[in-house]
Design a protein around this nucleic acid. Structure first.
Length: 259
DNA sequence: TATGGCCTGTGG
DNA sequence: CCACAGGCCATA
């Protein structure tokens, strides 16, 4: 469940449960997580208090009272779950944070999520662009960050160094709102159209935040183009197309999204 | 830019 | 069986 609105929601959820609590232990439950968080690192976490949980793009930082931070990234399918000490762990729990009266687990069926221990403000997030929702980010800034590259706008929106938090769904949905063809090279987009792109992406993000779990159940109904290949566009009726860009599916309406 | 790898699950 | 999955990295 991981693009900006989902990560922000997850971080809030986690913060409510762990702020000010002391880690009684950390268990690595899958070798893929263990590579980034070796045994001595997880051992060193025992007794540390979690001060806060901060989202940044699709990343989450669990700040500790000794200045270090647990850095979590959900990748494709991660999420948090919580339970009491009597509760069984969920099927795909990959990491367990033990509290004195319960636990929080990183659940991730695909085991692509990562957790690493950071020494304070190391350089791990330095390359990230501003969060897509950051009010100081405007079309002029975005124009400058994109530069005159040949890359198409849709894969460019996925570049976390340009702006942070936009993933495959919100990029497609945002471009639909903006009526911009995902294949347009960024060099051909001026400040005016980029303002629409930014607005469209933010509209999609806001919708996702309002729905909660965008792609699940009811949430999936909210999509305009994502996953709707062959269905009529809600705006102009033309069949939604699916293409592949940079190895990822892109959905768009060839009728009302302009080059 | 395209491809493959990381992992596992689901749906056609 | 195969294609695909809300991410990201390494490679040529």
């Amino acid at each position: 469940m991981p693009e900006l609105p989902e990560v922000e929601r997850a971080a809030r959820w986690l913060r409510e449960r762990v702020d000010g609590r002391v880690l009684q232990g950390v268990r690595v439950l899958h070798p893929a997580v263990g590579r980034a968080l070796p045994a001595d690192a997880s051992r060193s976490l025992r007794g540390r208090r979690i001060v806060t949980v901060e989202p940044r793009g699709k990343h989450q930082l669990l700040r500790l009272d000794d200045g270090r931070a647990l850095h979590a990234h959900f990748r494709m399918a991660g999420d948090w779950a919580a339970g009491t000490l009597a509760d069984e762990l969920p099927r795909h729990a990959r990491l367990q944070l033990l509290l004195y009266d319960g636990w929080v687990a990183l659940v991730d069926p695909r085991a692509l999520a990562t957790v690493a221990l950071r020494e304070g403000d190391d350089a791990s997030l330095a390359e990230l662009g501003p969060d897509a929702t950051d009010p100081t980010l405007d079309a002029t800034t975005l124009r400058a960050r994109l530069g005159n590259r040949r890359i198409a706008i849709k894969p460019a929106l996925l570049d976390q160094r340009v702006l942070a938090g936009v993933g495959n769904i919100y990029a497609a949905e945002g471009l639909w709102h903006a009526r911009v063809d995902p294949r347009v090279p960024v060099s051909r987009l001026g400040v005016r159209r980029l303002a629409r792109v930014l607005e469209g992406v933010r509209e999609a993000l806001a919708e996702g935040a309002a729905v909660g779990r965008y792609a699940d159940g009811e949430g999936g109904e909210a999509f305009r183009v994502y996953g709707r290949e062959g269905e009529p566009c809600a705006r102009c009726g033309r069949a939604v197309r699916r293409i592949v860009q940079a190895g990822r599916s892109t959905y768009f309406c060839p009728g009302c999204q302009r080059r």
